Simulated assay, not measured.
Amino acid sequence: MNTLTHRRSAGSTALLFGILLIAANLRAPFTGLPPLLGAVQADFALSTTAIGALTTLPLLAFALVSPYSARLAREYGLERTLFGALAAIALGIALRSSGALWSLYVGTGGIGVGIAIGNVLLPSVVKRDFPHNVASLTGAYALAMGVAAALSSAMIVPMAHAAGWKSALAVFLVLPLVAMAVWTPQLSASTKSVSSTAGPAHGGKIWHSALAWQVTLFLGLNSTIYYSAVGWLPAILTDAGMPADHAGSLHGVLQLATAVPGILIGPILSRLRDQRLLAAVVAGFSAVALLGLMALPQFALAWSILFGIGTGAGIILGLSFIGLRTRNAHQAAALSGMSQCIGYLLAAAGPMAMGMLRDALGSWRVPLGLCAILALVAVFMGFLAGRERHVDA
């Protein structure tokens, strides 16, 4: 990162630090909840469908809000819109942990809205300010996402045992508040209505590009299997006879494993003009891990690590494709909105479908097998999306 250049008056170090802190908010407030779903369900006497909605609601928010994120950035500037996203996450966390049933759902939805905006606009900031270091910086902020999520998953159950699940969820408020404090100096340099920063929500010809759909499906399928597994892994493992604390720890191991590719993928991508083989291989890792969880759950530690590496690398590649397959920040914002809108619509269906199948069949084998098939489809999409082309070619 020593070679990164910054075209704005604010120092590049401050901007990089702000980007990494924003990234730390884009997964942990969501993935920290699944280990506590049992406690939440018992406290409010919720049905399986009702508790499953808590994992689906943010993903629906991701899908619904993503297409409009670029429009918000065009109207108010990337910096101010990202600050607003952090404020939405903070408010959502406060509501979710306040103790009322209505605020649990409203707060969870608010967290999803804030994360959706950050998911879409952070690649656009990277493309605009660091166009020659898209892969390495994407890897760095994916690492920040993974580490924050891993720490939250590992610590959330012990904190809930010590102080209750509401207090444990309230601790996440530290993340957006710190990020807002660090990001505040960027507001003075806020860009507004500049064509090189963010484009309109519909993305123009992006939606008619075959390559854009290949990137979208690669990212979407990866997100579907990731959020399905993350949402239900503790339940899958406890159903297999594992103690809840151990299942929560493996949930954290999976999150930490997603951070590992952030160290490795950036340097690899910087040397590759064609990413077809890499994309196919990492999606294959996810398929093998899902089949392993289905057939040999006693080796859950190995499968959790392999799955985390596969999906973590898939997320980095998918986000990198947004910058690598486009020519400017305008296109990057449009492709980011498209890929995350469609991708999270797919991802929203995953956890709910897995829960319904589990209730209907009494086993996780079929849901895990279907996720493995989706991972194999992602292998093919990654091979197509990894070609050295641009969406307007």
Rank of each mutant, 00 (worst) to 15 (best):
T5I: 09
R8G: 08
R8W: 06
R8F: 04
F17L: 15
F17E: 04
G18T: 13
A23C: 05
A28H: 00
P34C: 11
Q41A: 14
L46K: 04
L46N: 01
T49V: 12
L57V: 05
P58K: 02
A61V: 07
A73G: 12
L82F: 08
A85V: 10
A87R: 05
A87E: 00
A88C: 13
A88Y: 02
I89M: 06
L91N: 05
S103A: 15
G109H: 07
L121D: 04
A150I: 09
M155E: 06
M155A: 13
M159Y: 01
A160L: 09
H161N: 14
G164T: 13
V171R: 00
L175Y: 05
P176D: 10
A179T: 11
L187M: 02
A189C: 14
S193T: 02
S193K: 02
V194M: 09
S195P: 05
A198T: 04
H202F: 10
L211M: 07
W213V: 08
T216V: 04
L217N: 01
F218S: 02
L221E: 06
Y226K: 13
Y226A: 15
Y227M: 06
Y227Q: 07
S228H: 06
A229I: 13
G231P: 03
A235Y: 01
A244G: 10
S249N: 14
G252N: 06
G252T: 03
I268R: 00
F285M: 14
V288I: 14
A295G: 11
S304C: 14
L306R: 12
G312K: 08
I315H: 06
S320I: 07
T326Y: 02
A329N: 02
H330G: 00
A333S: 15
P351A: 14
G355S: 09
G355L: 08
M356V: 14
A360I: 11
W364R: 11
W364D: 05
G369E: 08
L374Y: 03
V379A: 09
F380A: 13
F383G: 04
L384M: 11
A385E: 04
A393Q: 14
